[in-house]
Design a binder for these strands. Structure first.
Length: 188
DNA sequence: TAGGCCATCTGGTCCT
DNA sequence: AGGACCAGATGGCCTA
């Protein structure tokens, strides 16, 4: 997600003309079933299957630098079964990352974005979620109607932004943009 | 083509 | 000892 000023400005412009931007949550795009199945199949293997090709060749994906260490004659000798254990650890790691990515997908589905916004990156998902939670907390504390609170918040925010633009740091502007982004995306 | 994002592999560390 | 977690390194893909 890139906070292009033109993007935010266009949404603010729409809002100022009482045109509420569309809001859409990300489609539930769960992890690849095929990949899950593949990993389950791999983890059920009982023989020390080595997924990467013969030495010196690149596996289907990208091999890390240490993959070459196996080929390094100067490297310390590995204990027997090291490759098998390493392969098992790789599978566990992939499954762990799938779990993490699944959680990210779930989180994305709860973070308000614009329908034309490209898929949120992980870091943007986290930052927007933080901003969203903060906003929800403010709404709870205010006791106001959520929609009217958000609209009022946006109006006040725009005024304060204009007033304080001259001394606003980049970091503050980024946080402000996150806050505004969430607010505008919520309104519909 | 450079930069951002991501998946993957790997070794190290900590925990059970 | 083995699993979970983590961070570094690397290469692929995509976009401006």
């Amino acid at each position: 997600m890139k906070f292009k000023s033109s993007l935010l400005d266009s949404q603010v412009a729409n809002l100022s003309t009482n045109t509420i931007p569309d809001f859409l949550l990300w489609d539930e795009a769960g992890p690849s079933d095929q990949l899950d199945t593949l990993l389950l199949d791999c983890s059920s293997l009982t023989d020390p299957f080595i997924p990467w090709p013969a030495q010196g060749q690149e596996a289907g994906g990208s091999a890390g630098p240490a993959a070459g260490a196996e080929l390094d004659s100067s490297a310390p000798p590995r204990p027997p079964g090291h490759l098998r254990q390493r392969h098992a650890a790789n599978i566990r790691e992939r499954k762990r990352m799938i779990n993490i990515n699944s959680a990210f997908d779930q989180l994305r589905s709860h973070v308000p974005t614009f329908p034309y916004e490209k898929r949120l990156s992980k870091i943007d998902t986290l930052r927007l979620a933080i901003a969203y939670i903060a906003l929800l907390g403010e709404i709870l504390l205010s006791g106001c109607d959520p929609k009217s609170y958000v609209e009022q918040c946006l109006k006040n925010g725009l005024q304060s932004q204009q007033q304080a633009a001259w001394n606003t740091t980049g970091e503050q502007m980024y946080i402000y943009n996150l806050h505004s982004y969430v607010i505008i995306a919520i309104l519909r």
